[in-house]
């Protein structure tokens, strides 16, 4: 989706410059901001299709920027972090960030994530009659799941977990997000229950945790439903 507008919010001028050049080379229109306030202002002015957001900013945390932005915007956000920022990273995802990249990252990885997030962003909301990913098909109206035309029998909870993940394909969903959506707020800390269901789902879908086709584990953070494109 070349031509899309990307806003880089990072306080490292050298990294911003390199990112900008790299993205512009691939046809994106890029603007940059060096801190949170400038970033939020640029969102209004520049109207980006996507935000690359550093978590450690001089004036405010990237988490706060996410929260502020999510009040009135669905613009996809990919947060940039370094190792050791796990807690902040999860907080940013909980506040509505769509994905994260751990510094240092290669340009190729960044571009793939950008494409996935932009596609999701442009897909729009609204109920979908069916979710298809590879040979997996989820018929939302009939609440049935099949792989290569063969029906897969899921318990109601397994079904809810799968559809929640699939409806946010490509986006990293944190443990608390999934737990809240499927079980309700009271179960938000019950990660091993979630892990059990994910394992059952993988078994029934014939998915391999080490080389996943459908559900990918984001260690320490949550899970991501893979879109076909992200796989390829």
């Amino acid at each position: 989706m070349s031509g899309a507008r990307v806003l880089i919010v990072d306080d490292e001028p050298q990294l911003r410059r390199a990112l900008k050049r790299s993205l512009e080379g691939h046809g994106y229109t890029v603007d940059e901001a060096e801190d949170g306030a400038a970033g939020l202002a640029a969102v209004r002015r520049f109207k980006p299709d996507l935000l690359l957001l550093d978590l450690v900013l001089p004036d405010m945390s990237g988490v706060d920027v996410c929260r502020e932005l999510r009040r009135d915007s669905d613009t996809p956000i990919i947060v940039l972090s370094v190792l050791g920022d796990e807690a902040t990273k999860v907080a940013a995802l909980d506040e509505g960030a769509d994905d994260y990249l751990t510094k240092p990252f290669g340009a190729g990885e960044l571009l793939a994530r950008l494409r996935a997030a932009l596609r999701r962003g442009s897909a729009g909301g609204g109920p979908q009659p069916a979710i298809v990913s590879g040979d997996l098909e989820i018929d939302v109206e009939r609440r049935s799941v099949s792989i290569a035309g063969r029906a897969v029998h899921l318990t109601p909870t397994e079904y809810r977990v799968l559809t929640y993940l699939a409806m946010h394909a490509g986006k990293v969903l944190t443990h608390p997000m999934i737990l809240r959506a499927v079980w309700g707020g009271a179960y938000m800390d019950d990660r091993h229950v979630l892990r059990t269901y994910i394992n059952q789902l993988r078994a029934k879908l014939g998915d391999d945790q080490a080389a996943p086709r459908f559900i990918e584990t984001e260690p320490g953070v949550g899970y991501r439903f893979l879109t076909q494109d992200a796989e390829s």
Binding site: E12, Q14, L15, A18, L19, S22, L80, V82, K103, P104, F105, G106, A107, L110
Partner: peptide, 8 residues
């Protein structure tokens, strides 16, 4: 952080 710039 510097590594991120180099890698990009």
């Amino acid at each position: 952080t510097p590594l991120a710039g180099i890698k990009t």
